[in-house]
Amino acid sequence: MPDKRPRGYQPDWQPRLHTLELLASIEAILDRYAGHLPISIRQAFYAAVSADVLPKTERAYKRLVEVLGMARRSGRIPWEVIRDDSGARAESPLAFAGPMAFRAAMYRAAESYRRDRQEGQPVRLELWCEAVGMVEQLARLAGPYSVPVFSGGGFDSLPGKRAAALRAARDPRGLCILHVGDLDPSGTHLPRALAEDVAAFAAAHGGRSELVRVAVTEAQVERYELPVAPTKATDRRSFTAAGTTQAEALPPDILAQLVQVAIEERRDTAVHEAVLQQEAVEREQLLSELER
């Protein structure tokens, strides 16, 4: 039996009235978060749930996946505004079309020259998230502060935890890990295990580390009226919250605000401004040298 699902572009797509209404709501959501694009389908779904556009059911989520797929195939919604976290990642070898292309690349690199903006700060910061798909979004928030972003899903990422401990040991200021994860048994126990293991590894190498929960917390669920789901009956781990909430349920602008506040609370503004001034001077020096 032939597969009737759409393939390739679908410029002649004619959605029904109820689908058009859903698309209008999603487009309004994308406009609202224009400064935080791309967002994931899950984030768009939670925004639609909060706006009473969709019910919080797996069936409604699957429908949104299908509708957004067709909306992008048809050209109604731009491809670049939706982030598909399930997509494959690839690495391409660095190559140039010739010496002129190489020189142009060097000039572009000099234009974007940046010092380590954590230089001189009281503590070294890292931002960790439970979901791999959130790395790109969080990196845009943390990048201006030179704060690296890591995904730390799972209890068994021993190499990742030890690597963090070694980074902590190399820096006399110590390491502060800012953590973004789901509010559920895993999201509660995982950061605790992460904090304890990294601290133990770091201590063995003469370093120190701490972990700070940025999101999601019970207080944030109540304050921002985030959707909750019951805890799985099969999960026997201790969990005191009234229900579970995914990190992607936080509106992108609220998440950005929480991350920015967590970073800036641990930074010296005057030191940051001095590094930016030095960075600007050195950037001009590099560009002048390349122009000669």
Rank of each mutant, 00 (worst) to 15 (best):
M1T: 13
P2N: 13
R5Y: 12
P6I: 12
D12R: 15
L17P: 04
T19Q: 15
L20D: 14
L22C: 08
L30Q: 08
D31M: 09
R32K: 13
G35C: 01
S50A: 14
A51E: 07
D52K: 09
L54S: 00
L54Q: 00
P55G: 06
R59P: 00
L64Q: 00
V65W: 03
E66N: 13
V67L: 14
S74R: 14
P78A: 13
E80D: 09
E80N: 01
S86C: 05
S86F: 07
A88K: 07
A88N: 09
A88S: 11
A90K: 03
S92Q: 11
P93A: 03
P93D: 00
A95N: 09
F96S: 06
G98W: 12
G98S: 12
A101C: 05
A101N: 11
R108Y: 03
A110L: 05
R115D: 14
R115K: 15
R115Y: 14
R117G: 04
V123F: 01
R124N: 01
L125F: 03
E126M: 14
V132L: 05
G133P: 02
M134L: 15
V135M: 11
A139Q: 14
L141S: 10
P144S: 13
P148F: 06
V149Q: 06
F150W: 15
F155H: 07
S157L: 12
P159H: 01
G160H: 04
R162C: 06
R162T: 02
A164V: 06
A165W: 09
A165Y: 08
R167Q: 14
R167A: 14
A169Q: 11
D171E: 11
D171L: 09
D171R: 10
L183M: 08
L183T: 01
P185K: 03
H189F: 04
H189V: 02
P191S: 09
R192S: 07
A193R: 04
A193D: 06
A193N: 08
L194M: 14
V198T: 08
A199G: 10
A199S: 15
F201Y: 13
F201R: 04
A204M: 14
A204T: 14
R208A: 10
V212L: 12
V216H: 04
T217V: 05
Q220T: 02
L226H: 02
P227H: 02
V228A: 00
A229F: 00
R237S: 02
R237T: 01
T240Y: 01
L250W: 02
L250F: 02
D253H: 14
L258T: 05
V259W: 00
Q260T: 15
V261L: 10
I263N: 12
D268R: 13
T269F: 11
T269Y: 11
A274Q: 15
V275S: 09
L276Q: 11
L286H: 09
L287M: 07
